[in-house]
């Protein structure tokens, strides 16, 4: 009996220990550069009018034309922005974070709500997050080789918001994002109702993308515009764009949207990521996190609205 108990305890201990251990130190990696032929510095016009919003296809109107980026903001675009902002004194680097200004928000004192007063110490970007593809070297932000045209990740909502405003734009609202993703269709995914490995970078395609396309064994984004019908090292893709031709509206990285609601601090993300099952890529699905969060599977794109169209959540 004693022997059996000792054997069982040993197995239990061994199993428990197998879960422990120090986290490996993160080292920046290089990969081969893949040119998708898609220019991320391209804007697409979304005409005003009605569209079907959400899971239950609620007819919704957006009464102004707006432009949205063809792809997510890339690492190179974001690094260029950081370098410019640094040289202008708009951001600073401190304790592995890039910090910058935010105008602040009304505080309601509700449960779990964060106080967000005006200040210039809001995290824009987490340089210390394992999996980050931009590093800070000799006073400059540098992108890891091969990741230049991959979506910028580990950017917080504050950082994404600041980037978009720096180019005269803004983060899209959830409705602007959904309209850009769905057009006038009733699709579940930006390209239709089917999903498989060749449509997007998500949970089921991730293994093949790592092995066939990049020959690596770590979690990886795909360059923006990757799913364009081309074949990369034997990995076939379908041109899985939204009805307006937008790339990466499902999978690859979550995309921050502008919306915020009274009494809650979380900001929303849309589109699902390379870490997720297909259900999270459905157009209406929302993820959320606090605005200072920056994950390796979270990116963004921007919109530009016509003059006179103001989106102000403070008034709600």
């Amino acid at each position: 009996m004693k022997k059996k108990v000792i054997i069982l305890l040993t197995i239990f201990l061994a199993l428990s220990l197998s879960f422990c251990g120090k986290q490996p130190t993160y080292k920046h990696q290089s990969i081969k550069y893949i040119d998708t032929g898609v220019n991320p510095d391209t804007w697409v016009l979304i005409p005003k009018g009605r569209f079907y919003a959400g899971q239950f296809l609620k007819e919704t109107d957006i009464n102004y034309d707006y432009k949205i980026m063809l792809t997510d903001v890339t690492n190179q675009m974001f690094a260029d922005y950081l370098n410019k902002a640094l040289s202008e004194g708009k951001i600073k680097v401190k304790n592995g974070k890039v910090l910058g200004y935010y105008k602040g928000e009304k505080y309601y004192g509700f449960r779990h709500e964060l106080k967000i007063p005006e200040g210039d110490n809001y995290p824009y970007f987490h340089l210390d997050e394992p999996g980050v593809r931009i590093r800070y070297e000799n006073g400059k932000f540098v992108v890891d080789k091969g990741f230049e045209n991959h979506p910028a990740t580990v950017v917080t909502w504050f950082g994404a918001n600041a980037y978009c405003q720096s180019i005269g734009g803004d983060l899209p609202t959830e409705m602007e994002w959904e309209k850009a993703a769905r057009g006038n269709t009733k699709y579940s995914y930006p390209w239709g109702d089917d999903i498989d490995k060749e449509y997007a970078n998500y949970n089921f395609s991730q293994k093949e993308i790592r092995e066939k396309v990049f020959g690596v064994d770590f979690q990886i984004t795909t360059p923006v515009g990757f799913f364009n019908g081309k074949t990369y090292n034997g990995f076939e893709t379908k041109k899985s764009v939204s009805p307006y031709g937008l790339y990466d509206m499902g999978g690859n990285v979550w995309q921050w949207v502008k919306d915020r609601y009274p009494k809650m601090s979380d900001r929303f993300m849309k589109g699902g990521s390379f870490r997720n099952y297909d259900i999270y890529l459905r157009i209406w699905f929302r993820n959320s996190a606090q605005p200072q969060y920056g994950g390796i599977d979270v990116g963004f794109r921007c919109v530009k609205r016509p003059e006179g169209v103001e989106i102000n959540f403070d008034e709600e």
């Binding site: 879960f19 993160y26 997050e129 394992p130 999996g131 870490r275 390796i296 599977d297």
Partner: peptide, 25 residues
């Protein structure tokens, strides 16, 4: 339970080994 609480001990970029082990178990 370990899977669902893994973020307490491991960052997202390094969580695949623990995910794989817990999934297999």
């Amino acid at each position: 339970t370990v899977f669902s609480l893994k973020r307490l001990s491991v960052k997202m970029y390094n969580d695949e080994p623990i995910t794989a082990k817990t999934m297999v178990l």
